[in-house]
Design a protein around this nucleic acid. Sequence first.
DNA 1: AACGTAATCGCAAACGTTACCGATACATAA
DNA 2: TTATGTATCGGTAACGTTTGCGATTACGTT
Lengths: 385, 385
Amino acid sequence: MIPCAKCKKVETLMKAGFVRGKQRYYCKKCDYYFTLPSTDKKTERRKRHQTTIIDIAQELGVSNSTVSRALHNHPDINAETRKAILDKAQELDYQPNQLAHSLVKSRTNTVGIIVPEFLTQFFPNVIVGAQLILRQAGYNLMIMQSGESYETEVANTKALLANRVDGLLVSMSHETNNYDHFRTFEKKDIPLVYFNRVIEGLGTHKVVADDFQGAFTAVEHLIQNGYRRIAHLGGPPNLLISQERERGYREALKKYNLPALPELIIHGDFTAQKAAIYGKHLLDLSEPPDAIFAVNDPTAIEILTLAKAKGVRVPEELGVVGFSDDPIALYIGNGLTTVKQPTAQIGEAAAAMVLGMMRGEEEAFTPKTTVLEAELVVRGSSVRK
Amino acid sequence: MIPCAKCKKVETLMKAGFVRGKQRYYCKKCDYYFTLPSTDKKTERRKRHQTTIIDIAQELGVSNSTVSRALHNHPDINAETRKAILDKAQELDYQPNQLAHSLVKSRTNTVGIIVPEFLTQFFPNVIVGAQLILRQAGYNLMIMQSGESYETEVANTKALLANRVDGLLVSMSHETNNYDHFRTFEKKDIPLVYFNRVIEGLGTHKVVADDFQGAFTAVEHLIQNGYRRIAHLGGPPNLLISQERERGYREALKKYNLPALPELIIHGDFTAQKAAIYGKHLLDLSEPPDAIFAVNDPTAIEILTLAKAKGVRVPEELGVVGFSDDPIALYIGNGLTTVKQPTAQIGEAAAAMVLGMMRGEEEAFTPKTTVLEAELVVRGSSVRK
DNA sequence: AACGTAATCGCAAACGTTACCGATACATAA
DNA sequence: TTATGTATCGGTAACGTTTGCGATTACGTT
């Protein structure tokens, strides 16, 4: 009863096994194998779905191109039809499908940002600044946090790449020593701007606070307040931010003919955990420092806590200066002297940079570095009364 | 010399004006207008683009479906071809286009989260918790902040909708009184979970800390430490979080037969700014309170600052309890007594909820509310020595 | 030798939008 | 009239992936 798919004869046909659970037939005459096409139920439009441009078009009996034009006020459209379409869109609660849009335009209007953490105030503030600039330029911000882990940082870049971000802002985790995952962006010509945590040698734009000047001013301040045996609890040595702050520290000492003692310079990793260990080490030294310049506020705060526990009086016996002006700095003890960075401006500057790059305002590409001023905020932890 | 597009005759043809800068022709015989098809240059593949599945397919001389299968270890594929494809993918630095994938699957593997701000520690912590759970389930998190503005909150929902998130976590801005933008999600069957800042009546899942119990315990603690004239500097009255904390405050007073004095209950908006105004008002009262239960830590911190400036001794003359255990609480003065919320767990619980909903584990939909314990952390601001 | 079946792979239709062109109906100028 | 613009609108390839199903080979099995 089944006719051959080619010659339509029934008599020459025979069953010929199964394929994927369906009966297969073989026509001896045509020497042709085939299976019966499934009785295609002509599946009516999937039940639930966001309303599309096509839904609007069908309801109004126009083509989808017309609808598309209406929604983007293209000149080639009649005012009345546009109104009808806009009304219908409103009625059906149409939301454009950004995915489809991005796919065809191969632009997502999204830039990614990777930060090491957002438990201190620094990065959230940067993000707010960046978001401000980007939003008013019509861009969305996709926020990722690496949690100071190289692995997740790589995973983050992968995800952002998969989501085809148009640009990227990065502050590196202190774990990263390999930068291939960032080079990928350069290779694909995706604008990339580093901020705060940057390394040297990567030929890209950077936005940083003036770490050197900030550190120099901070240490000079300590010296001018009578501290002489000043230690530095630094950051990961691979990051420029650590290098610059240490350089500022060293230069300040040099200016006042003070020695930079190796035993008073320790590299941590920005975390309070490590700071506690190294800080304790410093305070327990047979000849302890009379001041500590910490690479960041969490470190400085840990030192203040240690000093309090040990009964070391601040600022009389120990001067402490931090870096970044964490809100806690204002409230802890008599206040923590710290170097204030223009957090929001860092975000804004970085955002402005990618914007420029994405708009292709670049002639020849020359890596530019924006340095924003850092300001010393003097509080109780560094001024002997 | 130009033949008619229909009848191919040359003699019946004549020029007939221009359309969009191109010469138009008219065949008198056929009564047919037309323009010459542009000499389609067969534009070779656009220069720069991320490598696609097709690039791999072409390089290897296989079809793109084969490549797709290889990349998802589909059974229908030879081990060798798979290896070849995988190698080539590596070589070409292939990154799957999430957009195209999402478009066809109509699933983005992304959930959105809207928070009012991330300048206090609370929301970042929640985000970290949520991200943890979602990431290991293969989902990305799209973070938005409303900045406590209704307008941007609406804009945020629009953006998330346009990006077709599979689910949404929301903590509302204190400005929002209209919830239509959230109802859209319910209407489109997009899983939605509120956390922390929720309102009543919305038939959806919620995750909150036990605000009532936390507040009750806090105020009871104040009473047990001898405070009698306890004020409450509350939050926006439309939010359940404010209502519950106020209820806890009132119930605790009631338990000890203390009156809830209207002049000692003021509603702020969570911000330090308003807290400064209302706090000053309270302290300047002819008969000032001997303790203040603040709706959150920024408010409490502002009160401590005001008290210090005014010379009111804490905790002797004024007991203060906050809510949320901001890091500052540990360091300010002799420490701020506060109610600690399980921030990360809130994020985790909320994330787990959307996950469940997205996986369609729901039978009939019954709004579920998860309440997580809040714990009183006693510090110096509330214990008279 | 003839058939049954598993292993592979290609085709092509979606997904929702955009944009280039072609194609009309009129309005207008010659 | 008649040739020429103009104002609108439809058709249809892309964009990069997934997937159902058809097709082809290669091998066992009777």
